[in-house]
Design a protein around this nucleic acid. Structure first.
Length: 120
DNA sequence: CCGCTGACTCGCG
DNA sequence: ACGCGAGCCAGCG
């Protein structure tokens, strides 16, 4: 693959994320093996994301929003966009998305929490 | 080509 | 549960 196509896999994957769902940087790096990128590179890729890419649906591990640390403004916008799409945040925490409810799992992937659900 | 930075993660205290 | 440091590797000056 050409270097110029490297991020294209990432962008395409993000575009495939349904409204109301989110994916993590690490998940993308792992899922889009064709791009051969690390989670951090996915973050770099998002800076180059075309306008038609729903960047707000990409979150950090555990639903944390890494952008919050660098740009409070982008963090606010991301949170607002996600809330519009119906993505739930953890109660009293504007920095974390409720991954159990909103993480998008491409076909085939099993959600570990389905087994851990009955914790009580 | 070299060194630093960063929209990340994971592991340890 | 939380902060901190190390590892990673592609951009950028």
């Amino acid at each position: 693959m050409d270097d110029t196509d490297r991020y294209a896999y990432v962008f395409d994957f993000v575009r495939s994320v349904p409204v109301g769902k989110v994916v993590t940087y690490g998940q993308i790096a792992d899922e889009v093996y064709a791009a051969r990128l690390t989670a951090r590179d996915v973050g770099t890729a998002m800076r180059f994301a075309p306008r038609d890419v729903p960047w707000q649906r990409v979150v950090g591990a555990k639903g944390y929003l890494p952008i919050a640390k660098r740009s409070p403004e982008l963090h606010l916008q991301q949170r607002r966009l996600l809330e519009q799409e119906g993505v739930a945040f953890l109660a009293g925490d504007t920095y974390r998305v409720d991954m159990r409810l909103s993480q998008w799992l491409p076909e085939g992937q099993s959600q570990g929490s389905l087994f851990d659900e009955g914790t009580t």
